[in-house]
Design a protein around this nucleic acid. Sequence first.
DNA 1: CTCATGTCGATACACTGTATTGCTCTGATA
DNA 2: TATCAGAGCAATACAGTGTATCGACATGAG
Lengths: 236, 236
Amino acid sequence: MTVWDRPEPPTRPVTLDRERIVAAAIALADEGGLEAVSLRKVAARLDAGPMRLYRYISTKEELFDLMVDEVQAEILSEEQPGDWREALRTLAHRTRQAALRHEWLADLLGGRPAMGPNGLVVAESTLAALDGLADIDTVLRAVETVSAYFIGAIRREIANLRAERATGLSKYDWQRAHGPHLTKMLATGRFPALAKAVHDGTDVDAETSFATGLDWVLDAVAARLARRPPATGAPR
Amino acid sequence: MTVWDRPEPPTRPVTLDRERIVAAAIALADEGGLEAVSLRKVAARLDAGPMRLYRYISTKEELFDLMVDEVQAEILSEEQPGDWREALRTLAHRTRQAALRHEWLADLLGGRPAMGPNGLVVAESTLAALDGLADIDTVLRAVETVSAYFIGAIRREIANLRAERATGLSKYDWQRAHGPHLTKMLATGRFPALAKAVHDGTDVDAETSFATGLDWVLDAVAARLARRPPATGAPR
DNA sequence: CTCATGTCGATACACTGTATTGCTCTGATA
DNA sequence: TATCAGAGCAATACAGTGTATCGACATGAG
């Protein structure tokens, strides 16, 4: 057999790392939602066999965890926030923006404790912004309450957005958006309050609605923080 | 061929309806989580072929919608609530209890608009409890804010619960619960505020933590409702 | 008694996550 | 430099998924 007959040795497999894998997965999810992410497709996008991924990941759930952590990097704001309120507000808004960029995030948010490196940094900087303003338990409760709010709010917003997209593209028309079903139900007269809400409610855009609810919650937090004097320094 | 040789005619297929299907699906989900729900298994539990379900459901997602709506029936409280605050509070707590009974609910809550019959009744009675206490937009914002909070809070609670279950059963010990990873991370000194929180934070049980945050949010709502005089009767 | 209809089971398809298996290439050791 | 152990990988395989299609069959109408 001459050289000419022998094929070249197979080109070394593309070097892989978690970063590349996660990037591919995120790209897939951005395009087709979470359900478009399959290990096979992720691998294919990297010119690799599916099984190769298992050296970097031991389960698909772990891939999702990595994806979430990756996006949490987008959430971190570089500049130091002014006060705690600003810190929590931008955390909420940046999370929301991330979810609008990556709608699949809404499906994952709050679904598992986020203990990745970026998740920890987010937690740390959030807690740091409140540190010393009240006893730790109050601070914890504050952070948890605010984040519970915005996770729930983001989820709903994305859910509605998808529902709207699914039924025609009637952007601001709930009634038609959810099809004849809701209309028919309201017509039965069994849901007067709901009917009034749908009928007379002003259509505010999602962002202001989000911001409004957030402000309410932040007010509530402020009230509790104010209750105790800040534990500055060593008051002992 | 005598009668004795001929087999009996096949017993008529078990009568089916959505109720039975949903009940079977819920049973499966209660036992093994959402991922244990497959159309084949649901059908098998009803002595039916998988394809039969498609007369009652046209997609698996619809089955999930039905499951959620079914559980929402458990949420409705029979007696009329005293005031709006009580109404919202019991809505939140009953939703939480339902999610503790059916943990898979946490995965579905807020994932899609709940327009089923029971969902509508829940929405109606909630709105009714606030009707007239403020202009409709404020009422809507109030309901949305509170429900965003408790959906997020429930999700986190269930997520933590699962994580705890997965790693040993160290009920109240976050640090060990999440394994050496968190401990090691905290030991790096890069997360002082987080470390302090984990270290010095009191371990409150999930229910009081839920209730506390809920109260804060309800306070915030109260503040906004008080801002405008109630539009009772026809003040025109 | 015949025929149309609607329901069901069987089969099939494309695809999933992951366990297993054996090849091949690499780097260390003798 | 020759040998060998081990790692990294592709291929194969498996059990399972949601759902489309299709042929048979029981049922009710004429």
